[in-house]
C-alpha cells in the first residue's frame, strides 16, 4: 500500500515525515552496534518475503508482514521497514519520495504497536497460544496499516473518503491471509528457533 507523491495535503506529508524521523530515532536507539548486521539480514528477509505473491480468490496479493516484522524487530522495525521502502521507491519506482515518511509510518507504526500488544503472548510455552498471538498480530497490523492509509487520505480531503473506505473493505481478506501466514510462521519459529522473537526486539 504505497501512497504516491502528490496525493496528500502538505500538512499530512510533513506530519508523516516528522513522525517517521521520531520512529527512526527510537528504532536506531534500540539497535546496539553489534545487532545492526542481524537487523540488516532480517530487513533483507522481510524485503524478499514482501515480493512473495500469495493466491487469494481469483487474484493474488503480495505480503506486507508488518506484524511479523514488529514481533521480530520491535522498534527496529521502523528503520528496517524504512530501508525496504526506500529501496523499493528508488529502484522499483513504488510509492514516491516526499511520501516516504507517511508510507513508513503507515507500515512501521502498526508493527511497533503489534509488538507492544502481542510480545508477551509470543513468550508462551505452548506453540498454539504463541501462534494465535502471532496470527492476531499479523492481522491487526494490516488492519491498522489500512486504517493509517485511510486516515492519511481522509486528512487530505473528503473527496478521498469513499476510496479510503473501499480500500479498507477490500483488505479484509488480506488481513485474514496475513494472520494465517504470520501465525504459521510464528508456529514454525517457536518450534525451531524461539530466540527469533527475543534477539532484536528489545526496549530502546
Amino acid at each position: 500500500m504505497h501512497i504516491v507523491d502528490g496525493a496528500l495535503a502538505p500538512e499530512v506529508v510533513i506530519g508523516g515525515a516528522v513522525l517517521a524521523v521520531g520512529g527512526l530515532a527510537m528504532g536506531l536507539k534500540s539497535l546496539p552496534t553489534e545487532k545492526i548486521p542481524a537487523a540488516g539480514v532480517l530487513s533483507a528477509a522481510f524485503f524478499v518475503a514482501s515480493l512473495i505473491h500469495v493466491p487469494i480468490g481469483p487474484s493474488s496479493v503480495h505480503l506486507i508482514l508488518g506484524g511479523l516484522a514488529g514481533l521480530v524487530l520491535g522498534w527496529a522495525a521502523f528503520p528496517a521497514l524504512f530501508v525496504g521502502l526506500l529501496l523499493q521507491a528508488v529502484f522499483f519506482g513504488f510509492g514516491g519520495l516526499t511520501v516516504l515518511g507517511v508510507n513508513t509510518v503507515n507500515i512501521a507504526l502498526p508493527a511497533v504497536l503489534v509488538w507492544y500488544l502481542c510480545r508477551h503472548g509470543l513468550q508462551s510455552q505452548r506453540p498454539g497460544v504463541a501462534a494465535a498471538w502471532g496470527a492476531l498480530g499479523g492481522g491487526l497490523a494490516i488492519a491498522l496499516t489500512t486504517a493509517c492509509v485511510g486516515l492519511a487520505l481522509a486528512l487530505s480531503g473528503d473527496q478521498f473518503l469513499p476510496a479510503a473506505r473501499l480500500v479498507f473493505l477490500a483488505h479484509i481478506p488480506v488481513m485474514i491471509i496475513e494472520a494465517l501466514i504470520s501465525g504459521a510462521a510464528v508456529l514454525l519459529a517457536h518450534r525451531v528457533k524461539p530466540e527469533l522473537f527475543a534477539t532484536l526486539a528489545t526496549r530502546p
Binding site: A44, A45, L63
Partner: peptide
Amino acid sequence: SYGYLVGMMLVRAL
C-alpha cells in the same frame, strides 16, 4: 505452507 516458508526464511536469516 507460505507461513512456514516465511518462518523458515526468518530463522535462516537469523
